[in-house]
């Protein structure tokens, strides 16, 4: 293909990527180094609101933003360097807490609490998703032709459900005396509260995520299984390889590129865990990095929002994902190099 044709094909996609990915990223990066705030002045204000039997009037000193002649709030943007990152990471506080009370004390600081859960979540769900995905794929592969269609359809169902809706449904099944909690209570003959401590919520969140994404892994692996060389499998049988040995020495090596692909996608997705936190309303016990960014970004009732910290937190999440992907990318690169 000559360069012109290549450029014509790739151009639109590169343009879109610049417009919708690179530019917003650059703007978030910039915002994380700046703080924009109104200029406040303190004035004495008397305000009256309903009371019984008479109105209640109070006089207090209030901060009121300055307005320009157009009636717009005057805002100033200042360069603050890494201050927003420091505010998110709270390194000094974290270090003091660790020195005083050991590693567990990090749990009392939002970023580190969120990082702890996000990493646990990502690293525990990864092998489970790969394992269940492969299991389902093998099951579909071994199912007889007559029922293959329905089996594929049913095993894909969890993946089709919108994540937040799925999380909410699980929440309702287990919340209070929900159907499944009632069942567990009946089975164990004791009172169970799934949302009254952190670990049960974490287990629910992880189980939900595995249930939700294993079908995606399964369908990719199933596609891969169709291309396994049947000659190699047959010769393995003749050589006396057991089912497990065929799996280990023929099928898995063949699927390796797909396993790496699924791992990368899952690491990126799982590190951004968010829907489950909202769906299970678990903020009191468990928070994730992406939820932290969201929490900075949501305005409170008086309209304040922490855009700079949200930007810093978003950049930190990206850096985290990049670090997690390094081993997998290195492996792909080495395979690529070795192949040529």
């Amino acid at each position: 293909m000559n360069f012109k044709t290549f450029a014509a094909f790739v151009g639109p996609s590169v343009f879109m990527m610049l417009l919708f990915i690179a530019l917003p990223l650059a703007s978030v990066l910039k915002q994380s180094f700046y703080v924009t705030q109104p200029i406040y002045e303190t004035v004495e204000v008397e305000s009256c609101s309903p009371g019984f039997p008479e109105q209640i009037c109070v006089t207090e000193r209030k901060s009121v933003p300055k307005l320009d002649e157009d009636g717009k709030i005057v805002e100033v943007t200042t360069y603050v360097g890494l201050q927003s990152y420091r505010n998110v990471l709270e390194l000094e506080r974290a270090w003091n807490a660790v020195k005083r009370d050991g590693l567990m004390a990090l749990q009392s600081i939002d970023f580190w609490k969120a990082l702890r859960f996000t990493l646990t979540f990502t690293l525990i769900t990864l092998p489970l998703v790969l394992g269940f995905g492969l299991g389902i794929a093998l099951m579909i592969n071994n199912a007889s032709q007559a029922i293959k269609g329905p089996v594929i359809f049913i095993s894909l169902l969890p993946f089709i459900i919108t994540p937040v809706i799925g999380a909410l449904s699980i929440n309702w099944l287990f919340r209070g005396d929900g159907i499944l909690t009632a069942f567990i209570e009946w089975y164990l003959q004791r009172d169970v509260s799934m949302f009254a401590q952190a670990w049960t919520i974490e287990v629910l969140i992880m189980l939900y995520r595995v249930w939700h994404v294993a079908p995606f892994a399964a369908i990719v692996f199933y596609a891969g299984l169709q291309t396994v060389n049947s000659d190699a499998l047959e010769s393995a049988v003749i050589d006396g390889a057991s089912r497990w040995q065929r799996m280990k020495y023929v099928v898995i090596p063949h699927l390796m590129p797909l396993i790496i692909f699924i791992s990368m996608i899952h690491l990126m997705d799982a590190y951004r865990v968010f829907e489950e936190i909202v769906g299970f309303s678990s903020q009191g016990y468990v928070i994730s990095l992406q939820w932290l960014t969201y929490d900075f970004l949501v305005p409170d009732q008086a309209g304040n929002r922490s855009i700079s910290r949200a930007s810093a937190s978003a950049m930190l999440t990206m850096i985290g994902i990049a670090i997690l992907l390094v081993p997998l990318l290195r492996r792909t690169w080495q395979d690529h190099k070795g192949g040529h």
């Binding site: 406040y40 609101s49 309903p50 009371g51 209640i56 109070v58 209030k62 901060s63 409170d300 009732q301 008086a302 309209g303 304040n304």
Partner: peptide
């Protein structure tokens, strides 16, 4: 009365 204000929102 709920003391609504900018600082109170935070």
């Amino acid at each position: 009365p709920y003391p609504g204000s900018g600082p109170m929102g935070i």
